[in-house]
Each structure stands twice: as C-alpha cells, then as structure tokens.
Simulated assay, not measured.
Amino acid sequence: MKTEDLNNINIAIVGGGYAGVTAALALSQIGANVTVYEQAHATGEVGAGIGLRPASIKLFRKLGIFDDIAAVTSPSKAFDIVDAQGNPITTEEWPQKDGDENTTRMIHRRDFIDALTKNLPEGMLQLDHKLIDLKDNGNSATLTFANGNEVTADLVVGADGIRSKVREIFGHYEPVPAFAHAYRVVLDGSEAQGLLTDDNLRLYLDSETGNMIYFLPLRHRGPNGQVSFDITVLSDDTSWSPQVTREEILHAIRNFDERLIRMVENMDLDKVNFRSAFDIDPVETWNSDSIVLIGDAAHAMLHHQGQGANSAVIDGGALADALRNADSLTSALANFVAERKEPTQALQRISRESWNQESASTSAFPEKDQISY
C-alpha cells in the first residue's frame, strides 16, 4: 500500500501481549495509526522462560529492537532431550540458524514483554480496556469496552489470546484440554542442584509415566543465574488453575533424577504457576475485510515445541509486511492469512503430539521439515 494510504489507516489491536505489541511496533513503523487496547490494569507477564527462535530474532533486528532483546537474553546452542535420569536421547542444534547472530536466545517472559512494550510510542498502549462487544461494519469495525469507551477502526487485530473475544465473530472455539498440567516456576541458580551448567534447553522425559520436566536456563539473570523449571504431568483434571500438593508433584516425578526431586522438595509452592494445558482446534476463518486474528487468538498451541510465542511475534511482522506490499487492505489480509495459516496449523498439530521415547530419539525439532522457519 502507498505511504499515504497507510498513514490514513486506523488500526485497533486488542491485546497487549507478544502478538499485539509486536504487531503494533511493526505496523507503526510502516506508517499506520495504531492503538493497542489491553484489558489489564498494568503491564507485565508472569510465568517462566521461553526460547526466541532465529526467525523471531531476525524480526527484532528488522524492527530495530534487537539490542533491547539481547540485553535480557542468553544465546543457546542446542536442545538436549534426556531420559528421566539425565541419560542422553537426542542433542540437536537449533534449526535453520541464519548465522550465529540469529541463534535462539533464552528469555524470561516478563523481560520479553517489557522489552517490547518499552519500544512502543508513548500513548499507543491503552490499559484497562476489556473488550465486551465487537461489530463488523464491513469496511470498519466498532469495539465497545467495559470502561464505556467505544472505538471504530479501519482494522481490528484480534491478539487477545486463547480465550479471544474477537475470535467469537468468526465462530465458537472453546479451549481444548490436553489432559495435562504444567507447573512452572523460576528458581535461583543456587537452587538448581548443580544442574545449571550451560545455556541449552533440556527436556527430561519419563518413558514410564509420560511426564516431563523442561529445564530452561536463564544464566544472564541475577548473580547466580536462574532456571525456568516446568513440570508437565498427565492429568484428567482440566480446571484452568488446578490445586496441587507437593506430595502429588513428587509422586508424578518419582522416576526422575534425585536432584530434580530435591528441587521440588525445596521450592516455594507459592511461587509456582499451576495451569492446565489447553490449545484450540484449527480456526477456519481468520479475517473479514476489517478484522483479523493473530497469535493465540488464531492458533493457540501446546507448549511442547516452544513455538507459541514465536509464532505470535512472527504474525505481527508478517501482518505489517502484508499491508506494506498489497494494493488494498482486503488483499493484504488475504495474503497474510494465506502465508501464516498453514505453518501455524502445522505447528498446532505437531505440538499436540507431545513427546515420547520414539519421537524424541528421531529429532529434537519434528517441525523443521514442515515449516519454513
């Protein structure tokens, strides 16, 4: 689209997470008028660590925020998959590195969202805006918020997560339970029982129970470094925030390395984030002429391949590229969906397969032959 056309487009982004903020950065840099509406009263992200893949790092360089990302990350060489006792199953370097400068980098979720939001132009992020109604007018859309504000925009970007309100306009997609719990906590390196030795992501896999422990190093954080510790266990309990005792966790990880067991024995359960794992079924329709879905609103996926956040930020960059390169908003949205729908739905399918001894011994990255990044 021509610069003058982009300058006249008003875009409302619903959701101030990774997808929404990255999209805002990218869209504002091509000249669009962007406002991000976030329902929370304050910014921030709880939880644990993630790995930013090479394609995401490449995008951050393009957006001019790589230095801010690099300041709160550690580069990683490989993904190590081991059995419950730490015996090697597979070690594989991160795929499709675009040179060492764009290698996967480990980051805490809070540091990530802070690095993104601090680069937004002042006033672009509007807090305390919970969407309660959305009307598609054809060539525009009108949003109504719980605080009484009403906004009409040329384009509404639904970046409001797995329980997206924007997505409801395209159909009813409830979160789908994976019948698994994820218990996540960030621990000081001094509590890691000597296991925090490098910057590689490590997956401990118990072939007997199917339970897993993700051990993600954050050695750049604090004088001792930190580790993001994620215990994933099978469970029939699908409550959003399950109530779990230490004894139940210890029973679930009974076959694991005694050092991992000691970490659980010593950890402060008040600091643990307890969640059931959910994704969504593939969404058939992502857009109209004035509304489009990105991130988890379009393709929420399970955490086993670590691609949820990466897919979300890549969506944001791809949406801006689509607007810049197309002749009209309508064709831009069609091009964006055509580019992003197939690879992200492939990742949804692969992530649902989780891990077992056979798949882990084949490759640490089963997605690498099915997607282009």
Rank of each mutant, 00 (worst) to 15 (best):
I350A: 05
T330L: 10
R275G: 14
E174V: 15
S354Y: 13
E38D: 10
V156G: 06
E101D: 08
A32I: 06
R349P: 14
H172R: 09
K130L: 13
D128R: 10
D268A: 13
G306Y: 02
L59H: 02
L131D: 04
V21E: 01
S311T: 10
I89F: 03
I253Q: 00
P242I: 06
R167A: 06
L203T: 14
V21M: 00
S239D: 15
I13Y: 00
L120G: 07
E92I: 07
A360K: 09
E284G: 10
F179D: 13
V272D: 05
V166Y: 03
S235C: 10
R221P: 10
I11E: 03
T144P: 05
I81R: 08
N149L: 08
H303N: 10
T104V: 06
R254V: 15
E339W: 08
L195R: 08
V227C: 09
A334E: 09
G123T: 01
V272P: 04
P175C: 04
R340A: 04
R349V: 08
Q305H: 14
S290K: 01
D281L: 12
A26H: 00
L205H: 05
H220D: 14
S235Y: 05
M263I: 04
D154I: 09
T90P: 04
T362V: 13
L269Y: 09
E342L: 15
G51Q: 07
N224C: 12
L127C: 04
S354R: 08
T117Y: 13
H299D: 01
T197H: 08
M1P: 08
I291R: 01
I249K: 01
E150K: 06
E208R: 13
D268P: 13
V72C: 10
Q126K: 07
K2G: 15
A346S: 12
A153G: 05
N200A: 11
I9Q: 10
Q226A: 15
D128M: 02
V185L: 00
D98M: 13
R275K: 15
G161V: 00
Q85W: 08
V36D: 10
S28P: 09
L127F: 01
N139L: 11
G123C: 05
I9R: 06
E4M: 12
K118Y: 14
Q370D: 11
P242D: 08
T238E: 03
G306C: 06
R254M: 10
S331A: 07
I261T: 05
S207C: 14
E353S: 13
A326G: 08
L302E: 03
